[in-house]
């Protein structure tokens, strides 16, 4: 199966300012791809290139197997802009009907179902909608024509937690039906629950692409084990991946790098009455990527002087 997005050396300069440089990215059919990076890193630049809103300085890209210059391909994409502008006296329902018509027809019922799920009021003039309600209208228009490929730029901004949950459910349904999603964010927590892979972009460069499962495996986590009787410290010392070991009577606590397998097997020799494992802090790994590439940038900068 061909990739949904494929870019090679994709580069965009705004005058002399770098927006994005040498991006090689592949997004596979049926996956949810999280595109992460701080504000101004190049996420929106990438997305706007894929949609032909802006044109690359150099490099090659294909979206759904064709050049994004071809307008027909955009009908197969649903797009939520990062800064969605909706204004005027026009009602959201009229605007959605217009967008649906241009994209080849969307039924009223389909729009009504989505509005109901996201609890959006479409009868209000768009200029008077709050930020959160505008975002809902943006999500409805992105999802309503059941596109093969959804591009969502910072989709959860302004949404309250309940609507965020509903939105994540909608993303999972899209993946469940074999369609593809690209969603950007500046925090990992927003995408880690739905994304299969994440790409991390910083200062216009892609610094890493990781499987979320692999990222979890790499994650640092605290584990606490409680036994029915005191355990000997020696049995837990020197286990691979175990750090900061503390044994106090019947309880053992430590930090795990990667897999907890060795620890679990060591603990299995005793009677475990209680086990606590804190959620892995992916944010921490994520920040490591940031700071590493920051140091690298710093080195380049010093070398350049």
């Amino acid at each position: 199966m061909t990739a949904v997005v494929e870019t090679e050396g994709l580069t965009k300069f705004y005058g002399r300012r770098r927006g994005l440089e040498d991006l090689d990215l592949e997004i596979r059919p049926g996956e949810v791809f999280g595109y992460l990076g701080p504000n101004g890193a190049g996420k929106t630049t990438t997305i706007r290139l894929l949609l032909d809103v802006i044109r690359p300085t150099r490099g090659r890209m294909s979206v759904l197997g064709t050049d994004p210059r071809d307008p027909a391909v955009r009908g197969r994409i649903g797009y939520l802009p990062g800064e969605l502008a909706l204004e005027g006296r026009e009602k959201a329902s009229e605007y959605l009907a217009f967008l649906g018509r241009v994209r080849g027809g969307v039924s009223r019922d389909r729009i009504a179902v989505l509005a109901d799920r996201l609890d959006a009021d479409l009868s209000v003039p768009m200029g008077r909608l709050s930020k959160g309600n505008k975002q809902k209208v943006g999500l409805i228009q992105a999802f309503m024509h059941e596109p093969e490929f959804l591009i969502l730029d910072e989709p959860t901004g302004g949404l309250d937690p309940l609507v965020q949950q509903e939105f994540l459910a909608m993303v999972r349904e899209v993946r469940g039906s074999g369609r593809t999603v690209l969603m950007s964010s500046h925090v990992l927590a927003e995408v880690e629950n739905v994304a299969d892979r994440v790409g991390i972009v910083r200062s216009g460069r892609l610094v890493a692409v990781e499987d979320v499962a692999a990222l979890r495996e790499k994650a640092v986590r605290r584990i606490e084990l409680h036994f029915d009787a005191p355990v000997p410290r020696e049995d837990f010392e020197g286990l691979p991946g175990v750090r900061d070991l503390r044994v106090e009577g019947a309880s053992v606590s430590c930090t795990i790098d990667g897999r907890p397998d060795a620890l679990v097997k060591a603990a299995a020799r005793f009677t475990v009455v209680h086990l606590v494992s804190a959620e892995p802090d992916l944010e921490e790994i994520f920040l490591t990527y940031y700071s590493e590439s920051e140091e690298e940038e710093g080195r380049h900068a010093r070398a350049g002087v």
Partner: peptide, 11 residues
């Protein structure tokens, strides 16, 4: 105002 962004991404 930014409303053109969505319009140019229509097919």
């Amino acid at each position: 105002t930014g409303t053109l962004e969505l319009t140019v991404t229509l097919p």
